[in-house]
Design a protein around this nucleic acid. Structure first.
Ligand code: MN
Ligand code: MN
Ligand code: MN
Ligand code: MN
Lengths: 218, 218
DNA sequence: ATAATTATTTAGGCTAATCTAAAAAAATAT
DNA sequence: ATATTTTTTTAGATTAGCCTAAATAATTAT
């Protein structure tokens, strides 16, 4: 089973769009891949013929077991390479996504397994996302968004969703990264923005948009 | 300037075939790329249009300055990744070529320069071939083939050309690798095979074919 | 010098991955 | 229930990279 980079990108994007077996729409996939809906329809037919997803014209589609398995291997490669780039080559967490977008398509399984060992089997990528193991198993850590936190209790940042280059950079400047300990001081009722405190630092106010994207655990 | 993997493979193959600005023929390039001569002609037209080589139909072709520059960057990436695979991921020197064949097409220059630094600027790849620097400069080390050696003087293996998977493996078994010290004991006049001696090992006889491919320096 | 052989190019086709424009189906609004 | 809007699919084209078969040029042998 070897798939083109393009097919792999489709599978990965579908995986991210379908949460727990929710149906995905042609337009949303087109948007997430920056492609035209007509191109998506073309590719869906091919992926269906290769038995990687369920697809009913006009109704939507979702990965089947095999499709998910393939998607998870690509995600594994993406995240392991991101970890390598940050931990070994000392790139910033806001710089690695594009490179990983290419590296994830390398075909050698032996290579990725050796890389995994070389990196000492990391559990999380630099953005706090879990790294699937060689069998595609994800270690689930229960995370909550900063938005739903009780006040004045310490939490650890364990992930950031959304992940625009700009946001990651900005968070970095405020010293908000994976592993940062913080507590929520207040939540402003008029715009849902959140005031947080990190030890030895001035308080920072985060908009609802940003707070929603920061994931923490105790 | 970004080129497809296919174009990069063409440029690299032409670079290896043309020694010092020697003309290359359509058939030899087709053979080295495992492609049909007609496909080579197609590609030559495109590479000529992109001003990467001189090409006169029926007469032959060779890379121009720009073409050589591009080829050397691909070779740099190939050899740095091979070094990484052997030194950091502990693959054997006979296992890394295929993987490097993919890795060499990654586009990020920042990535390869950081990798270079991470590896502490190696001069040679695992097969003893020199690694071009970021500007495409090759450090030339004068090597000779085992075939032309005087008897009973110690030399160091510094490279292996040819490089079939099988030969590399066989040499490995005989403890012949980059850095091995050896001396030639005898050269058999009837078939040009060569008898060599490595310290604390039984003598080994190498056919002319193999001896020719082993490069050494004092 | 001519014929035979070999090397190279041309002509014409195929597939994967994209696109635009038009048609058709589904969802939404009146 | 119809009409309008939105979503999705179909039809038809394009480009890169490859192929086979046929034509042509260059080389080699007689
Ligand atoms: Mn990708
Ligand atoms: Mn990530
Ligand atoms: Mn290659
Ligand atoms: Mn090499």
């Amino acid at each position: 089973m070897k798939y083109s980079s393009s097919k792999e990108n489709y599978l990965k994007a579908i995986y991210h769009l379908q949460g727990e077996s929710k149906m995905v729409s042609t337009n949303s996939l087109a948007a997430s891949l920056q492609a035209r809906p007509a191109s998506v329809t073309d590719m869906l037919k091919k992926l269906k013929k290769e038995k990687l997803l369920h697809y009913e014209p006009y109704l939507g589609f979702r990965l089947n077991q095999e499709g998910k398995k393939v998607a998870l291997q690509i995600i594994r490669k993406h995240r392991l390479w991101e970890y390598f780039l940050v931990k070994k080559l000392h790139f910033g967490w806001d710089e690695v996504h594009e490179m990983a977008e290419e590296l994830e398509h390398l075909t050698s399984t032996r290579l990725i397994d050796r890389l995994d060992r070389f990196l000492e089997f990391p559990q999380m990528d630099p953005h706090g996302d879990p790294i699937p193991d060689a069998n595609g198993k994800l270690s689930q850590l229960k995370q909550t968004s900063l938005l739903n936190l009780p006040f004045n209790r310490a939490f650890t940042v364990s992930g950031v969703s959304g992940q625009s280059q700009e946001m990651l950079e900005w968070l970095g400047q405020k010293n908000i990264r994976i592993g940062t300990r913080l507590e929520v001081r207040n939540k402003l009722p008029f715009d849902n923005s959140v005031e947080i405190k990190i030890k030895n630092q001035l308080p920072v106010t985060l908009s609802e948009q940003v707070a929603k994207n920061i994931l923490v655990h105790e």
